[in-house]
Design a protein around this nucleic acid. Structure first.
Lengths: 208, 208
DNA sequence: CCCCATATTGAACCAAAGTACAATTTACAC
DNA sequence: GTGTAAATTGTACTTTGGTTCAATATGGGG
């Protein structure tokens, strides 16, 4: 498992800005990819490794704010640092409410941007770890049969086998059978682990 | 259990602003308390029910931003809506990074403020529910003896009694005794519940 | 019609959890 | 020293969890 190098995406319509920022960010040791518009950025297929986005607010076509909204809607979680020459407070507040990491009015100090990028990359790493783990669990969940899933939802409430059996109108023996399969398929060895992993992907425990 | 009425705290050094805002907010059905400075607000003892804070950025003495920082440091979680006549983008961004709900430059529409207040109160309710539950759990945790706490940290890993016994160099019988006390003191009936509640207040499971 | 995944159940058995009686020791406060 | 909370352990017992043999039924898909 080689450690992937963080990538910083830069979206700005002014090529001079793109070049200057690219030079700055590269000098700090990041990989960089630049785009002249939001549409261009969207066409690129998602990056697997940790990455963040330095985004101009004002862009021809899709604006920076609109791009942010689109990314949020499509559940594409890449931390965003806004830069702008003609921003105002309501705009910056809206951007931050939507989860932006930072919002820098031009002209800004290069160091400021790099600090923001580091924070953004750290956030990206955290997000990625969560998503990876979550994806793993959901992959395992899909191998469960409908009935097993049902039993799982009861099992994580801490209910006894006989109680679950009563709820599902089946015998305790059957519940045991399902539980055995569940534990194996979910690759856990205790109910405690089962509770923990199911919490990570929003499984609703059955109601007592 | 009577439902407590939300309170909106208003901190502004200009009495005309305080009066105008108070009238506006009261007309929307909230209780209001006004303060002329951050120090004044801090002296008031904490409100039990849901509340939020409408805070002027520029204040004599303790500034709004400083007050926010102080509240964050002291872990006093009251959602803040900033208002300001002379703010800039970096200021608004810093405020939002520190958890502000909104940041409104004057002049603003009264409706805007009321919308923000509603969001802030909703947030306060959520926070309060969490804190209440968390406080309950921590109260129960304090009744555990040091040894019981230790056993708890192992138990929520899903480890068998005999395995825990081995780790702690005691007999399985002793572990059972501790577990019994733990379950009673924590007012739960299953390991599943134990795992869930301990997750809510950051108990670190012992390392396998 | 047969295969297969799914769901269900049985008997017997062992391991683990938990409880009802306990008793003993240790350390610390008064 | 005495009292108290905490920690530890024992024996015997019941309940629950889980596995190893299974077998049976059901409902498509080929």
């Amino acid at each position: 498992m080689t450690k992937s190098v963080p990538v910083v995406f830069i979206v700005d319509d002014a090529s001079s800005v793109r070049k200057a920022l690219e030079r700055l960010v590269r000098s700090a040791g990041f990989n960089v990819e630049t785009f002249a518009s939001g549409e261009e950025f969207l066409q690129r297929k998602h990056h697997k490794g940790p990455s963040c986005l330095v985004l101009d607010v004002r862009l021809p076509g899709l604006s920076g704010i609109e791009l942010q909204k689109k990314l949020v809607q499509e559940n594409i979680s890449v931390p965003i640092i806004f830069i702008t020459g003609h921003g105002d407070i309501p705009m910056s507040v809206r951007a931050m409410k939507n989860g932006a990491v930072d919002f820098l009015p031009k002209p800004f100090d290069g160091k400021e941007l790099l600090t923001a990028i580091e924070r953004a990359i750290e956030k990206a790493v955290r997000i990625r770890q969560n998503e990876t783990e979550r994806a793993r669990i959901e992959r395992l969940l899909k191998t469960l049969t409908p009935r097993e899933y049902e039993v799982l939802r009861w099992a994580i409430t801490g209910m006894l086998n006989k109680q679950i059996a009563y709820r599902l109108k089946i015998t305790e023996r059957t519940v045991k059978a399902h539980r055995g399969c569940i534990m194996e398929k979910m690759q856990v060895e205790s109910v405690a682990d089962l509770v923990r992993i199911t919490q990570k992907c929003g499984i609703i425990p059955a109601e007592k």
